[in-house]
């Protein structure tokens, strides 16, 4: 029987959640026995090759490409998990949500104290995805089945969750794994 497929992506995130996935250390060997990776930075597959059981989403949506990828994940995955606080709530990138977009761009490329930009232009190549008016958590864009909180969620949390899902058992996360102070 074919192994279930898992896909992962990092949207408006810092890749910290993906680092945390790698923190499962040698258990990654067990994981590849259990699953095949599909579209993911881990194996560098750029596009989906087939239907996936689980999609792990790091980061919220800050631009149109994020939305596009997230919708692509929704269409290819049976279960979508918001992995970490940015996917769940927008996180650090969402700090811009109270500031008008133009001001954000001007601060980042023109007026910020550490900016060196002799051209005085805000980058605007057609290749650059358009920014959204604000940063959206994933569940405001597509249906999300589960949320794993944490910045990042620990490797053990991710491991326990994946194993439970793949073996069709209830997720048992001990208090230590979901305590953040």
């Amino acid at each position: 029987m074919a192994k279930p497929r898992v896909a992962t992506t990092s949207l408006a995130g810092c890749f910290g959640c993906h680092m945390s996935i790698l923190d499962i250390d040698d258990r990654i060997l067990k994981l590849v026995e259990l699953v095949d990776f599909d579209k993911s930075p881990i194996d560098d597959f750029k596009t989906f090759t087939g239907r996936c059981a689980v999609g792990l989403i790091e980061g919220g949506c800050c631009n149109e490409e994020n939305v596009h990828v997230l919708q692509d994940f929704r269409q290819h995955c049976d279960i979508l998990i918001s992995l970490g606080d940015c996917a769940t709530m927008g996180g650090i990138p969402a700090l811009r949500n109270t500031i008008p977009l133009r001001e954000c761009l001007e601060e980042a490329y023109l007026h910020g104290p550490s900016v060196y930009n002799p051209s005085g232009r805000i980058p605007n190549d057609p290749e650059i995805p358009l920014l959204l008016n604000k940063v959206y958590p994933c569940h405001e864009v597509v249906k999300i089945d589960y949320h794993l909180p944490g910045c990042p969620p620990s490797a053990d949390t991710i491991w326990e969750t994946l194993v439970a899902l793949l073996s069709d058992k209830p997720v048992q996360l001990p208090y230590e794994l979901i305590k953040y102070d």
């Binding site: 939305v67 929704r74 358009l130 008016n133 864009v141 249906k143």
Partner: peptide, 16 residues
């Protein structure tokens, strides 16, 4: 499609 009907990509991109 499992997308949120309340999310309007065109509205979200207007400003940019």
């Amino acid at each position: 499609q499992g997308f949120r009907s309340s999310f309007d990509i065109n509205r979200a991109l207007e400003e940019a």
